[in-house]
């Protein structure tokens, strides 16, 4: 379990990282926390000729809570986001999801940007990005562009980033409604394992208890994390009850296309997707209701 030979470059600025990417493109991999990349290299499943280390780039490690959006640098550690008090209050879904990402030890090193760029369809942070419609600011030597999560995730371990591009910032939209509740839940064999299925929901209510906005997503049951804007749009303007959660969850689960593996069959995953979707909606709604 030793990585095949590779060249290593430590970038001290984003510009330098982009220049290295321009030069080596397909041959290169960025390394931040390395929590997925290093094991894959050790098992020789990935063989980058160049490893470009972005851990020294201070400008990629910020967390900024603004009025409409939480902006996080691509190299901000998962543990930093998890412990950020403002994120905990303003964007509880992100904090809830982070508790499921690996273990405390891996979160101390792993970065949110790394998890998104890795794009594992069962990973937690890509699901949150998909559900909230996060924006991805991409940078290359040629310039910057911003794309939405739904365009960013293109398949298992694959994104819309070009070989010479890197993730610079993530823009996590803040919902302005005061009565907003969220929930992240998942089923894995053991705590900290890859999710067999994960579910994220966020619901906002008006003062009368009517739904003004709702979002639902499921992870581990398709080639990318899935969001269901068409289904959740139907909830707007209504008072939600148990039947709505069950109905919506059933329909969302029916749209999933999970695979089978050693730990769970496709049928089991689809069943659990419905169970967790209903639980996430129910809990998110309960939290929104509890805000007076």
């Amino acid at each position: 379990m030793k990585a095949p030979p590779f060249e290593y470059a430590r970038a001290t600025s984003l510009a330098e990282a982009c220049e290295l990417l321009r030069r080596y493109g397909d041959e290169a991999k960025l390394i931040a926390g390395g929590q997925s990349l290093v094991p894959m290299m050790a098992m020789r499943l990935l063989r980058p000729a160049w490893l470009i280390d972005i851990n020294e780039i201070a400008a990629l490690k910020f967390v900024a809570v603004e009025s409409e959006v939480v902006r996080t640098g691509a190299c901000a550690r998962q543990a930093v986001l998890e412990r950020d008090a403002t994120i905990g209050v303003r964007m509880p879904l992100l904090k809830q999801a982070l508790a499921w990402v690996g273990h405390v030890q891996t979160r101390n090193r792993g970065t949110a940007g790394g998890s998104l760029a890795h794009a594992d369809p069962s990973a937690e942070l890509p699901l949150v990005a998909q559900v909230l419609g996060a924006g991805m600011l991409l940078r290359s030597a040629k310039g910057a562009r911003k794309i939405a999560a739904e365009e960013f995730f293109t398949g298992p371990m694959s994104t819309a980033m070009a070989p010479d591009e890197c993730l610079e910032e993530v823009h996590w939209p803040l919902w302005q409604e005061r009565r907003t509740g969220s929930e992240f839940t998942e089923l894995s064999a053991r705590h900290g394992d890859f999710a067999m299925v994960s579910a994220a929901a966020q619901i906002a209510l008006d003062s009368e208890g009517r739904c003004v906005r709702a979002a639902l997503g499921l992870g581990g049951v398709g080639i990318t994390p899935l969001a269901f804007p068409g289904l959740t749009a139907r909830l707007v303007g209504t008072r939600l009850g148990e039947n709505d959660f069950e109905q919506l969850a059933r329909e969302a689960a029916a749209q999933c296309d999970p695979g089978s593996d050693l730990h769970a069959s496709a049928a089991y995953r689809r069943h659990v997707a419905g169970v967790l979707a209903a639980r996430a909606l129910r809990a998110a709604h309960g939290r929104a209701e509890s805000v007076q």
Binding site: M43, A189, R190, H191, G192, D193, F194, L262, H263
Partner: peptide
């Protein structure tokens, strides 16, 4: 509840790493 060296029908060990060979942790 967790641990098994599982084999596929084509004779391959399916749980050859700690991702799939599940040893209970302090959580379990």
């Amino acid at each position: 509840l967790y641990e098994k060296f599982a084999y596929s029908e084509d004779g391959q060990l399916e749980s050859g790493t700690f991702m799939d060979y599940l040893i209970p942790s302090a959580f379990e």
